[in-house]
Design a protein around this nucleic acid. Structure first.
Lengths: 152, 152
DNA sequence: GCACTCCTGACCAATGAGGTCAGGAAAGTC
DNA sequence: GACTTTCCTGACCTCATTGGTCAGGAGTGC
């Protein structure tokens, strides 16, 4: 139930690419500097994003990375899945494939609801939303409650 | 973003205890059998739940475990926190303590919303709800959508 | 005294997290 | 063609976590 450094880094790098927009390929080093991410680690992450078709790259002088799609067509969920794998799996199996016995019968519905609630946030926010700061209302409503900001 | 075996096991054991109700202490072995959980592993988990004040136990013949509070006062969130630690931390720090730079400024709100959405499910469902199958409407609504049951 | 059951710490193998290092392979420049 | 730049890739490293097992100690009830 935690967010890994990799996922956090990947989203931040994507945001930086979106902000760069049409100004041509952005070097890995610039992304690393802008977001304070270890360069060599970031390169591995960018490679994964590339393999999943979310970004593209060119080598050599004038080389760098750019988004493979418009920023408003890339969701945070896609990025998280690319680097962390499936969301909200239980013991590494998807919740719809689990059968519970006895008193735990209905636990499956709970894990399904957990995944669904994560999706309502992660699949709703695009990189463009993130950069502009205009988050979908589902999300800004959740983040607006003072309760959401306190630890438990 | 995954649910560990420990959390899954812990919730299932708690459900079994709730179902046993007033019939006195339940042996670890019976819980393990009923929910198909490795006994020795389960014992460690039950110990953690006990240390967090969620269950109680007595040794010896006629010994066993029982819930420390009424089942409708124990939420799934409490159980998950007891065995997995804080929910939705980013790189092991709570989202409210992270400061993002540049284009990632608003990422903090996103992670806060992620945590809030998890809480709306996990803090709403009690062990009593789970056993009875009458889940809160927030949760059953989420689980009712066919969309929630398909992988991505 | 004895059986029963929980309690606890030590241990273990496999995996993931969070990186670093070294070199190779394209792309552009002179 | 040589050189520089930048991405690409695999190997490696340390440490913590996951998902357990094992062995024994300590209460409890009869």
């Amino acid at each position: 139930m935690r967010v890994s450094a990799k996922a956090d880094y990947a989203v931040r790098a994507a945001a930086e690419l979106a902000a760069a927009g049409e100004e041509g390929p952005v070097k890995g080093e610039r992304l690393a500097d802008a977001q304070d991410i270890p360069l060599q680690f970031l390169e591995h992450i960018l490679l994964e994003l590339k393999h999943h078709g979310l970004i593209r790259a060119r080598r050599g002088a004038k080389g760098g990375y750019w988004l493979a799609k418009p920023a408003d067509e890339i969701t945070i969920a896609e990025i998280v899945r690319a680097v962390e794998g499936p969301i909200a799996h239980v013991q590494s199996t998807p919740p719809e494939d689990i059968a519970y016995r006895g008193s735990a019968q209905h636990l499956q519905e709970v894990w399904i609801a957990v995944r669904a609630s994560l999706r309502t946030v992660l699949e709703e926010v695009t990189i463009a939303d993130l950069v502009s700061g205009e988050l979908p209302s589902v999300v800004s409503d959740l983040a607006a409650s003072p309760d959401a900001w306190v630890a438990r």
